[in-house]
Write a protein that binds this DNA or RNA. Structure first.
Lengths: 206, 206
DNA sequence: AAATATAATGAACAGTGTTAATAAATCGAA
DNA sequence: TTCGATTTATTAACACTGTTCATTATATTT
């Protein structure tokens, strides 16, 4: 059986090579410049070889997306040290906005592009490993706030959705240059943080 | 001088032809299927001719985008008949969500894609005709609510931004299939409307 | 060593936006 | 009206894109 194992390991290694090359292109040249041919060039394989290891480009993008979520989850490590769930919620929102503004290409892949979701629907049978983890984090904090009667009670999913919507709305409008038409460019970031804080504030009072 | 006028009219007519063909492709085959060559085929011109009438594809998409805003503005005609600005705000939010869900391709172009904004930055010297009209509508209603002390007072732009962010967050997550991971698919639309109503409610109380 | 399974590739398909060079049509002035 | 200049349209090409098929090379099993 050792031989099959080794083959599987080799296979996994080449998959990793492909993903690392994709990642390199992604961070250095941006989302638009990740192409099958450029990845192949970088690892010195022919473009067709990539199709032995991945079904299509969407699957590669899906994995880049998952790595984006890993980064985001890592940026939230400090959360566990905060005992008050409301304060945790504030920091989560702040981190979310900062992550989006600092990693617009990742954010794009994670929350805007269709490609990764196509792979989830076609292959992963509906499972979204890291994405679901991130959403669980939000729901869990909201639940804890509700349990401790720090915010109004209600359907956890619905309230999580509203909070997420504000954060995502702000970030996605910002990175697509839509917010500048409403607020002076140099005040956009500050206004975004105010908005999200205001949102959580009203959850408390209501 | 009449001769220059006629030429200008002819020029404008071909521009219209191009845009109408683009529109036809756009509504029938979707955003992804609007290509220079397909447009050219439809009007029976060569692809290069389009570059005499438009700088690039972005400029064509920009005009499709503007037409999307016209549709959206048209869907808000009923607003003027509502005297209470808060009720007008409720309807505006409802309309916004319905428009996004019913015209995801337009919505994409208007609020998600980069292409139209590139044209605005490169050519229109920062002016966004219909887009700005739509934003003014929102700001005007918020202002009126504040004047009549129906909602908390504050910076109009900032509060408008927050309201817009919720609405856009909901719609864009929905049309990119992200909301289904948080709320059961058949409850997504209802939850969206609840969220936006809730948002406006809190503006009242606060 | 021969047969089989796996891995890798070259060439090609069918498209994309865009540009430079060239041909056709139209217009203004001599 | 003819000549030269300008505008308009086209052909061909560049440099890409994702993806597939038939073929070759490599490695494993019988």
């Amino acid at each position: 059986m050792g031989i099959l194992e080794r083959k599987e390991k080799q296979r996994e290694e080449i998959r990793k090579m492909i993903l690392e090359a994709s990642m390199q292109l992604f961070v250095k040249e941006g989302f638009e410049n990740v192409s099958i041919r450029k990845i192949a060039d970088l690892i010195e394989y022919s473009p067709t070889t990539l199709y032995i290891y991945f079904k299509d480009k969407n699957e590669i993008l899906f994995h880049l997306c998952e790595m984006g979520f890993e980064r985001m989850i890592a940026s939230n490590l400090a959360l566990v040290q905060i005992e008050n769930p409301i304060d945790r919620l504030y920091l989560l929102g702040e981190n979310y906005i900062n992550f989006g503004l600092e990693n617009p290409e990742y954010y794009d892949l994670m929350f805007i592009q269709n490609a990764p979701m196509k792979t989830i629907r076609e292959q992963n049978v509906g499972h979204w490993p890291n994405g679901d983890v991130a959403l669980e984090t939000l729901k869990h904090i909201i639940q804890e706030c509700m349990d401790k009667k720090l915010i109004q009670s209600g359907d956890v999913a619905t309230i999580s959705m509203a909070v997420w919507a504000v954060a995502h709305g702000l970030v996605s409008l910002a990175i697509r240059q839509r917010l500048e038409r409403l607020v002076e460019p140099d005040k956009v970031v500050q206004s975004m943080h105010e908005s999200i804080r205001w949102m959580i504030n009203t959850l408390k009072k209501a």
